[in-house]
Design a protein around this nucleic acid. Sequence first.
DNA 1: CACTGCCAACTGGCATGTTATAATGCCCAA
DNA 2: TTGGGCATTATAACATGCCAGTTGGCAGTG
Lengths: 241, 241
Amino acid sequence: MTKKATAYAFLERPEHMPRGSLSSHVTSQLREAIVSLRLKPGTMLDKSEICERLGVSRSPVADALARLQSEGLIDILPQRGSVVSLVSLAAVKEYIFIRTALECETVRKLAVERPGGLVEALEANIARQRDLATEDDKQGFHNVDLQFHEILLNAAGYRRMKAMVDTARNNLDRARHLSNRIRETALALEEHSAIVDAIVKGDPEEASDAMRRHLDSMVESVFEVARQSPTLFSDGELAQA
Amino acid sequence: MTKKATAYAFLERPEHMPRGSLSSHVTSQLREAIVSLRLKPGTMLDKSEICERLGVSRSPVADALARLQSEGLIDILPQRGSVVSLVSLAAVKEYIFIRTALECETVRKLAVERPGGLVEALEANIARQRDLATEDDKQGFHNVDLQFHEILLNAAGYRRMKAMVDTARNNLDRARHLSNRIRETALALEEHSAIVDAIVKGDPEEASDAMRRHLDSMVESVFEVARQSPTLFSDGELAQA
DNA sequence: CACTGCCAACTGGCATGTTATAATGCCCAA
DNA sequence: TTGGGCATTATAACATGCCAGTTGGCAGTG
C-alpha cells in the first residue's frame, strides 16, 4: 500500500492555536486549498484523514466543512461524504451576477459620497497597476487588482456585503485557476481607470456602468475559455449557447 | 422559584424528525422566534434550556446558533454566551443596500430576458395586492408583498443570490416588527406596479430605478420611525443625521 | 468606602462515543 | 445472466464528556 499521508500534505498543522480559533484555522486552510485547486473539484474529502493530518478532532473539521458548504465550495451529501463542489458555468454566471450587483451599487454609492482619502488610494493603486502592466508582471498585477476591489469595498463600510462579495470571488477564483488564464492586464487597467474616473467625477451612473463593463468582460473571458475547453466545467456544453 | 420552562415555550418540540433535518429544524425555529421578536434583541440565549425544551442535545443547537450568527441574527461571544443581535440603523442601511443591489440587478435581468409566465404571475399578484389594499387587509397585503419579491427572485433562477436576499430580509423584518409599522399599502402597490410595467416594457434601466425607489421608500419609512422613537434601535441617535 | 485579588460558576470550543442511513458488493434464486 | 434482497461498511448526524477562558461576587486590604 502506498502511504496516503501525503494526500493532505499542504495543510499546515497548527502549533498551539488559541482556543476559539481552531475552527477558523481549519476553515481557511481548506478554503485556500479548494480555491487554489490543490483540492480539485469533485474530490471526496476524507474527514478522518484531515483530522489526523491537522492533529485535531472531528468537531472543528465538521465545523469548517459546514461553513465551506454555505460558501458554496463543498457539497455535503448526507451519510455519504463531503465533496469539493464542481465548477459550473452556471455557478460562474450566478457569482458574477452577485458581484456585479454588489460592486456596481458600491461604486455608485462611492461616486456620490466620495469619502476622504478614497480617490488618493485608488489613484495610487492605479499607478502601481500601470507599473506592473508595463513590466508585464501578471501575478503582481493580479494582486494589485485584488487590492483595487478591496479598497472600494472597504470604503463602502459594509462588512457583511464585503463578505458576500468575498465568497463570490472565491468561487470565481476557482474558475480562473481552472482556465489557468490571466486576463490581458492592459485591458483590465483601462477598465479600472474608467471606474476611478467616474468616481472622481462624482457620476454614479457612469461608475456603475464602468464596473459592469469590467465584470462583463470577465464573464466573457471565462466563457471564451469554456468554448475552447468545455471539459473544464461540469456543464461545459453550456458554453456553446 | 418561578418555573422558567415557559421561557422558550414558543419552540415546538419535534416528534420524530428524520435524521439530518434536526439542525435545520432547530435553526428555523430559532430564526422564526428572532425575526418575529418573540426573542428580543439583546436577550441572552440559554443553550441548555433550549436543549431541554426541544429535547435535543447541544450539537444541533450549537449548529443552529452558528448558522444564525452567519445570518447576522445572533452574536456569539466566546466563552461568554450567545445573544440575539441588536437591531441598529447601521445594519438596516447595510441590508437595504444589499437588497437594493441584488433586487435591482434582478429586475434589470428580468426586463431583458422576460422568462415565460413571469409577467402573468406578476400581474396576478398585483391584482391580489389591489384587492387586499382596497379591503385594507394589511397583513394579507404584506404576505402578497412577500410573494411579489419571491416571484421576481425565483424567476432569476439564482438560488444563492436568493438566499442572500432572504437573510437581508429577515434582518429587515426585525426592524419592521420593532417599529410595528406597516407601510401605506397604496403606496407600495404603486411602486410594485411601476416595476412590473418596466419589465413588461422590457426596459432594464427603468425596472432597476423603480425597484430602487421602492426600497428607498422603505428605508425612509424606517428612519422616520427611528426619529420618533430613537430608543428602538441600538444606535437610534443616528437617525437625526 | 474604594480597590484589588482570588475563587467558583457558567459559557462555548473541542474531543470522543454512538447511531441511523446511504451505498456497495455479494450471494442466491429465477 | 440477471435481478433482488441481505450483510457489510463508511459516513454524517447526533449525544455527551471535558476543558479553558471569562466573569462576577466576595473577601480582604488600603
